[in-house]
Amino acid sequence: MKASKVAQYGLITALALVLSYLESLLPPLGVPGVKLGLPNLAVVFALYRLSWKDAWVTSLVRVALVALLFGNGASLAYSAAGAALSLIVMGLLWKTGKFSSVGVSVAGGVAHNAGQILVAMALLETSRLAWYLPVLWISGTVAGVLVGVVSGVLVKRVPEKK
C-alpha cells in the first residue's frame, strides 16, 4: 500500500471517528436509534471521491474503533449490521450512477436503521419491535437528506488531489 493511501485512510477514518464522537455528545433525540448519522458524511464522501472499497474501509474501521473505545459487544453488533447493510445499499445505488449523494445517503440512512432493527430482533429473539420501524425509517430518511446535502457540498468543494 502506498504511503499516500495509508495517509488518506488515516485521515478519513479519523474524520469518521471524530464525527462518531461528536454525535455521541449530542443530546438524545427522544427515540433510541434516531440520530443524524454524522459519520456517514465521511463514508459518503469516500464513496464519491474515492471508491466503494475505500468507503468500506472507512466505515468498518470506524465501527471497530468506536466499539473498542466507547462500546461493548452488543453495540458492535448493531453498528456493524447497520454499517454493512447501509454500505451495500449505498454502493449499489452509487453504481447505478442515477443518484446524487443525497439519494445514496438517504437510502443508506434507512438501510442502516433497518439493519439495526433486524439485529435487535435477532438478539432479543422478538419480532415486537414493529413500532421502531416506521419511526427509524422516517428519521433515517430525514437524516439521510441532511447528510447527503452536506457531503454533496463537500465532494464539490474539497479540491481533488493528484
Binding site: 442515477k98 443518484f99 439519494g103 438517504v106 437510502a107 416506521p134 425509517w137 422516517i138 430518511t141
Partner: peptide, 14 residues
C-alpha cells in the same frame, strides 16, 4: 431520482 427515492421512502414509512 433522488427526490423520487425520498418521496417513495417517506410514503412507505408513512
Amino acid at each position: 431520482n433522488d427526490v423520487l427515492l425520498i418521496a417513495v421512502l417517506l410514503i412507505l414509512g408513512g
